[in-house]
């Protein structure tokens, strides 16, 4: 009887790990392929599909770095990502807190208005946005690139955070109020720490969107000194010729910071409520 129980449990765990491992494999293999491709040459990259490269061309990385002018673009992308993510978290959490926990006339209408921004696709409004930025004298400035992206990330972030703020236990808020916290105090000392998993998710989503953003940069920026990282990758993709090994090396370089950021953030996704509750 007990043996059967254990056996069943074992079997269950084996099946579970099999599922996990096979899904994990499909997630890792492309990355490995990308990495091994980055060490090949243009004429072997598609003729020799082996993952293990016998004579790795490490110099691809150096060439990609210099040809793609990554040094300068990298810093730009960091500035954009930090600014946009910071801006989104700050403005969205304030608004979401108001939508979830405070009362004021027009609340619902405003919330749905924000939601709508997620739903009307950008293609039509791209040129209108450019005209607007031109009027605001923000074309070819960092601010002109940052602000629309904060706006673009807002709706999703407000929605996610509202969902999380609404689930906060009311008594925590009450006890904080008794301790003399104002609304802002509750937001800052109770709501934000408790929403840490959601904030981590928002940081990851937005950071990735900004890091990979490219079209808007092409539209709004023209000085090379303002361009983000993705501009560097473009160098390897001609209208006709794509220099695949350099491109793969470039993409690998570009992907590392995002993966590292995710590594840091996923810990916050996990250490959710318990840690937060103690602190609060």
């Amino acid at each position: 009887m007990i043996n059967r129980f254990i056996l069943e449990k074992r079997l269950k765990s084996v099946v579970m790990h099999l599922i996990l491992l096979s899904v994990a494999a499909t997630c890792i293999l492309p990355l490995i392929w990308m990495f091994s491709s980055s060490l090949k040459t243009q004429d072997t990259i598609f003729s020799n599909m082996h993952i293990i490269v016998s004579d790795p061309h490490w110099e691809n990385y150096r060439e990609a770095w210099t040809k793609g002018n990554f040094g300068a673009y990298f810093l730009n992308s960091v500035i954009y990502t930090v600014s946009v993510v910071g801006g989104v978290v700050f403005t969205a959490s304030l608004a979401a807190f108001a939508f979830a926990r405070l009362n004021f006339p027009g609340k619902n209408i405003m919330f749905y208005m924000f939601l709508i921004t997620m739903m009307i696709p950008i293609p039509g409004s791209f040129i209108a946005l450019y005209v607007l930025l031109q009027k605001l004298r923000l074309v070819n400035t960092r601010l002109g690139y940052i602000l629309p992206q904060i706006n673009a990330g807002l709706a999703l972030a407000i929605y996610i955070l509202k969902t999380f703020f609404e689930e906060l236990p009311k008594d925590l808020e009450d006890s904080a109020r008794i301790d003399g916290c104002g609304k802002f105090g509750v937001y800052w000392h109770i709501a934000m720490p408790l929403a840490k998993p959601a904030i981590a998710v928002i940081v990851v989503f937005n950071a990735m969107a900004v890091w990979n953003e490219y079209l808007l940069a092409m539209l709004i920026l023209s000085s090379k000194s303002l361009m983000p990282l993705q501009r560097g990758l473009m160098v390897f993709q001609g209208a006709h010729i794509t220099r695949y090994p350099l491109l793969m090396a470039g993409i690998t370089i570009a992907v590392v910071p995002i993966v590292v950021l995710y590594l840091i953030m996923q810990r916050h996704i996990i250490t959710g409520i318990t840690a937060g509750a103690v602190k609060g």
């Binding site: 700050f90 403005t91 969205a92 304030l94 608004a95 807190f97 108001a98 939508f99 405070l102 405003m110 208005m113 924000f114 921004t117 009307i120 409004s125 209108a128 946005l129 607007l132 605001l136 602000l147 629309p148 904060i150 706006n151 807002l154 407000i158 609304k183 937001y187």
Partner: peptide, 17 residues
């Protein structure tokens, strides 16, 4: 609380749409 979000929204969304 909603003001910063509202300003951004009004500038960068309402006009283009």
């Amino acid at each position: 609380f909603v003001l910063p979000a509202l300003i951004l929204f009004a500038t960068f969304y309402i006009y283009p749409v």
